[in-house]
Design a protein around this nucleic acid. Structure first.
Lengths: 233, 233
DNA sequence: CGCCTCTTTGAGCTCAATCAAGGTGTGTGG
DNA sequence: CCACACACCTTGATTGAGCTCAAAGAGGCG
């Protein structure tokens, strides 16, 4: 095990995923792992390439995307620290990555080899429970999105922002989205155009429901967004 | 173990999920299981109710749905024989079912208690590999759907039909959708209106690209549908 | 300083939703 | 056995939400 990894063990053990295991078990689960540091918009795994490694997000954020037949980027999922990426395809040899994984701003990922997954991860029931739990929430988001399909634009945007902010700390009734999000990324995630997202969000900002500085979004009046999300007329 | 279950063991062992295990292992995995027979549109699990059991589809088909805020049914997934439903939420106690599971025509499901999942399923690495593989394809479908969002109606319908027919036997270049599908269900699955689906599909039927008798859909010219799916203008 | 990405606003157009109306088949209760 | 309800299919006419296109400003970076 390399030194960078050793010094990161403390950090790693704080994640829900690893926190119930002792030192030696965690070391085993991280066998042949590497910590990769990424700048903005760097590609970790590429859609279609044979999947040989999976990852655990350490810091920053990553987006999971695919290119639509029209050539536009479609965002499948946003991964924050503690999230696992590309683990589901580890169970099959010679499978292509089902998505492209790209960093959003500076970020760090623990990249682990497929064999480690097959040798140790899959054989650890408690770990499997945690992984299935992660996938359960990921699946829930995709399902939520499908349910919102026929809802108007505004409801979709509200739904996405609330979903992303859900895990975050709530201070004084305000929520924050823990990701540096561009309007384009919101649009690509919802399957709508940038212009539409901008129109909705500038309107909200004008009314003081939300505020954005740089690419950091604050939800000032969550109740109002929830109302917006639910009312569909 | 009840007699109905015993006689079904032969059938059960044919599924990809169970085929690599010996008799006693399969019996253990089916501990306290019940075979439930359903008519058309019967509800197996209800969205929001506490999840205590999961299921393996034996015959027929089931749809996984949720009700949208507008009150419309939204289809999340179609499950065919061999598919597992509600397994992901088995790892958490007192979690609500994330979807409603409803039979489509006569169907049979092996219903198993949560404890069996936690006691035996989760501890069987080979079984976990198979389950993760099932979820991987399910996730892939949801992702595909997300990518197709901005595509025109016709492309979406083509994509869905091809996806559902993909697993099926290909005879003489023709594909069949192995499900009794109504236009409404296709619409609810794509997040569009029945009328739109009908307009597209009657057009295709007129041109001889597909044919439908009762609720059984045949794809006569798969290449044309693939073309339709890919071309987005 | 030019290039690039992200944001913003406006004007016009289009695809699919909505509304309306009629047809068919199936189950059900009087 | 008929009548009625209900679920599904079909077609046409109208409409509007969101897309497209266009144009321009605002940072960040080599």
């Amino acid at each position: 095990m390399n030194t960078a990894l050793k010094s990161a063990l403390v950090e790693i053990k704080k994640f829900e995923l690893f926190k119930d295991f002792d030192e030696s078990t965690v070391q085993q689960l991280c066998e042949n792992a590497n910590i990769k540091v990424h700048a903005h918009k760097q590609i970790v795994f590429n859609f279609g390439e044979p999947a040989t490694h999976f990852g655990v997000v350490l810091s920053g954020a990553y987006k999971l995307t695919r290119i639509s037949p029209v050539g536009e980027e479609s965002v499948i999922h946003f991964s924050s620290p503690g999230d696992v990426v590309a683990a589901l395809v580890m169970t099959k040899k010679n499978t292509p990555y089902p998505v492209t994984v790209k960093s959003m701003g500076p970020a760090r990922m623990l990249v682990i080899h497929q064999d480690t997954y097959l040798n140790y991860w899959i054989k650890n029931p408690m770990l499997i429970i945690k992984i299935q739990s992660l996938f359960s929430t990921r699946m829930a988001r995709l399902q939520n999105h499908k349910v919102m399909q026929r809802a108007p634009m505004a409801s979709k945007v509200a739904s996405l922002l609330l979903q992303l902010a859900a895990d975050d700390t709530k201070t004084e009734g305000q929520l924050e989205v823990p990701l540096p999000l561009t309007r384009k990324e919101i649009a690509d995630s919802l399957g709508v155009t940038v212009e539409s997202v901008i129109r909705v969000m500038s309107d909200w900002a004008k009314h003081g429901y939300i505020s954005t500085t740089d690419h950091h979004i604050k939800i000032l009046q969550p109740e109002w967004l929830i109302h917006q999300m639910e009312q569909c007329d």
